[in-house]
Amino acid sequence: MADRTVNVITICGSLRKGSYNRIVMNALPGLAPEGMQIKEAPPFSEFPLYNADIQNATGFPAPVQTLANAIRAADGVIFVTPEYNFGIPGPLKNAIDWVSRVPNQPFAGKPIALQSASPGPLGGGRVQYDLRRSMVFLDAFTLNKPEIFIGNCAQRLDDKTGKITDEQTIGFIRQQLAAFANFIAAHGPKG
């Protein structure tokens, strides 16, 4: 297990192209510790709004299965999300709702890390605790610390170049990713 590459996928909670959270997500592969590969998960933008009748009539839509399979195959998942109305963005929650219904639950036992960026001062201080709650229900293992709340993110990210400009933020992210690597080693499937 020690020599194996750790494969982590990232899920961005915002769909807009210029999203601050997307900028953060895009930076992660370059900040990962050795032995960890990070890439973006398949999209949830085409998921229908969850309705159990769809599931029962025609099964899980193809994009749902694609995302579920990617989560199942990954060694860990990092959510990078904004906060909408003091909570989880509806589309992201909708994606979790669909995936939560798939048999052989992909989130069960899965190491999770959370990051959020916001132009406001709290940096997503509410959304992450709400997301933890859903992850507890799904029996995932969410990394406790370090936490990544990027507040006043307009000063720390450059949305023209799509880069994180604040060195302190970069440092914190590196720390969290390194901690996540250890966490995955401790919690992930053995062998």
Partner: peptide, 11 residues
């Protein structure tokens, strides 16, 4: 749903 608001309603 999943200990929280259904995603569709939140959307």
């Amino acid at each position: 749903y999943n200990w929280s608001i259904p995603g569709g309603l939140k959307n």
